[in-house]
Deep mutational scan, measured.
Amino acid sequence: MGFKLLSKLLVYLTASIMAIASPLAFSVDSSGEYPTVSEIPVGEVRLYQIADGVWSHIATQSFDGAVYPSNGLIVRDGDELLLIDTAWGAKNTAALLAEIEKQIGLPVTRAVSTHFHDDRVGGVDVLRAAGVATYASPSTRRLAEVEGNEIPTHSLEGLSSSGDAVRFGPVELFYPGAAHSTDNLIVYVPSASVLYGGCAIYELSRTSAGNVADADLAEWPTSIERIQQHYPEAQFVIPGHGLPGGLDLLKHTTNVVKAHTNRSVVE
């Protein structure tokens, strides 16, 4: 069995187990497998329904001669939608809004960016022009300005110390501490036991640490421990890039980060 097929099978099995364990909360999309990078042309966006009122959005972007996937989250909030992270750029984010209108038909009224990198804030200006209120932590807003990236308009308070959590509509926002970046936030959907790890969490097929220019490698494993301790009931975990899975993604990420750190020390 090929690795790609095995990865998709694991996603399907995880979703099936969740649907059985929580039949009222989960209505997993039966329309197909989780979209992969090879299936999404740059400039297009796919939506994948995880649970009743919960979707991931998947886009792709060219970077350094390669094409990478990027995940975000959409959560229903009454007759409105909360968006977590842009679709990595203005063109993708405009396509995301169009796809949401086509498939869901509810307005996106608020959006949260989970850290300051372009795959999370690139497209904020498109959201703002569409009347979406954009939010991020003060740290993310400051770092985005320093980096020359787009800056969300509103500040999220109460997320300055490791372990801080605040309720934001249908989700809980959690600051686990520094990891992929010093400002990275985690998003949890309690009604569906869905954990969105953003770039602080890796997919299972990833074996290298990737972009760690703004990471705190020493603190990252401790931050992941905080996530595990705060959300032990999480059933569906979405990484910032690639295929979702279960809580095993947290341990896998820790292993990859520690291996990278150990290699760096040896070198």
Rank of each mutant, 00 (worst) to 15 (best):
A178V: 09
S30Y: 15
G89V: 03
G169V: 03
A213C: 15
G240L: 03
W55A: 00
I40A: 10
T140S: 12
F174T: 01
I224F: 03
T140Y: 04
Y196V: 02
H57G: 02
P69G: 10
T261Q: 06
S113G: 08
L47N: 00
A111D: 03
G240D: 04
V121W: 01
S70Q: 05
S223N: 03
Y196S: 02
K258I: 14
S38Y: 08
V37D: 11
L195N: 00
F116R: 05
V54E: 03
Y135F: 08
Y135K: 00
A25M: 11
D52R: 08
A15L: 09
D248S: 09
R120C: 04
K91D: 15
K102C: 11
Q61T: 08
V75F: 02
T109A: 13
S162R: 13
V28N: 15
V171T: 08
F116E: 03
A95N: 15
V45F: 03
L106E: 13
L5G: 07
G2K: 11
Y175Q: 02
F3G: 07
L143T: 04
A94S: 13
S193N: 09
T153P: 04
E44P: 07
E150N: 15
P176N: 00
H180Y: 04
S162M: 14
Y196A: 05
A129K: 11
W55Y: 13
D118F: 15
Y68R: 13
L47S: 01
A234E: 02
L217M: 06
T114E: 00
E150I: 05
C199W: 02
T114Y: 01
I224R: 01
A129S: 14
S56F: 12
F63A: 10
V67R: 12
A259M: 11
E233T: 12
Y135L: 02
S27K: 09
L249T: 03
G32R: 09
T86F: 00
D85V: 00
T86K: 02
F236E: 09
P239E: 00
N255Q: 05
R76D: 10
G105V: 13
H180C: 00
Y231V: 05
E39G: 08
T109W: 12
T253Y: 02
A136G: 13
G43R: 12
V256S: 05
S31A: 12
L156T: 04
R76L: 10
A136D: 03
T86V: 05
G131W: 04
G169C: 04
V45R: 02
R110T: 09
P152C: 02
A136T: 04
A129R: 10
A19N: 15
L13D: 04
Y188E: 01
D85L: 00
P41W: 12
L156K: 03
V124M: 14
E33Y: 07
G105I: 06
D214I: 15
G245D: 07
A87W: 00
N255W: 08
V75D: 03
D216E: 12
R167V: 06
R141T: 07
D214N: 07
S56Q: 05
V265R: 09
P176R: 01
S7L: 06
T207N: 14
I238P: 03
A66V: 09
A178N: 15
I50D: 02
G78M: 09
G163Y: 13
Y188L: 02
Y34G: 09
D29I: 11
Y196H: 05
G245P: 00
I20P: 12
